[in-house]
Design a protein around this nucleic acid. Structure first.
Lengths: 136, 136
DNA sequence: ATCTATAATTAGAACAGTTCTTAAGTAATA
DNA sequence: TATTACTTAAGAACTGTTCTAATTATAGAT
């Protein structure tokens, strides 16, 4: 926890209590929270925290490569503190997002018609389906 | 063109001039237009057309499985009259989206840890990169 | 320990994209 | 051609996100 905080200070952050709360909530969080959910969590400790602070901090983390913006949900952004390349599966019933740690890059080559005119820098696989909880 | 129109009439549509303009603009369109672009195109012919009409028609088409909502761009929806399953590549410079007609489903299997709790109904691969026009 | 410069905070306005509301209009059927 | 149900247009409303401006707090220097 102490080195977690100092890690972000070393990134040029000015560490405020609000930011520590956001960082603490995100650290190791695999639930892909939305800005709304992060806001709600921090608000329990800091009732006057604003959305601006949440978005500012998320933006700052993204800019420094410490946060992945998960865009599988067209309605809103989700945030993932795991910045290792990976993929996602989303439940179409409850909108839950789970991580998929498989490296498909070997098999995901573009056809020549596209690769000739496109310099690919990354890929992301989205799986859609129904999760176990919603299957009943 | 005539059978194109009657196809949609057969789907339970009431065919209005505005809808014909939208359908005509979309038919065979591989440019993945946004609602804004569709609105602008139809507006040239029908200056009083409203966004509501555009969105209504797009919704109606989607509901009937005649239109794919492409969600690769987190900023806005793009629409694709090609409903065959396929994937997309987006240029991070100019936001251009191109189709990728490759069936990766053989290789895109979920790991057991996820597949046990997830009943997958579909997948979509997003490629990011820089297109030829923007590479200069 | 205190001061200072700079960055972060809050509240709320503003914004973009999309959906909803309502009255008026129009296509399809009989 | 009359009827009925559906569609339209205009703009209000809504959701998620970004911006603004005044205030406050952090980090580093003194």
């Amino acid at each position: 926890m102490e080195d977690f905080i100092s890690k972000f200070r070393g990134l040029g952050f000015k560490l405020t209590p609000q930011r520590i709360a956001i960082l603490t909530f995100l650290d190791g969080n695999t639930g892909h929270p939305t800005a709304e959910e992060i806001f709600a969590a921090v608000r329990q400790e800091y009732p006057t925290v604003s959305f601006a602070t949440v978005y500012n901090t998320l933006q700052a983390l993204s800019d420094r490569g410490q946060l992945t913006e998960v865009t599988i949900d067209p309605e809103r952004k989700h945030f993932d503190p795991n910045t290792d390349p990976h993929h996602h599966a989303m439940c179409s019933e409850c909108e839950k997002i789970v991580d998929v740690f498989v490296d498909y890059s070997e098999t995901l080559s573009l056809p020549d018609t596209v690769s000739g005119e496109f310099n690919v820098t990354g890929n992301h696989v989205e799986f859609y389906g129904v999760c176990g909880d919603c299957a009943e």
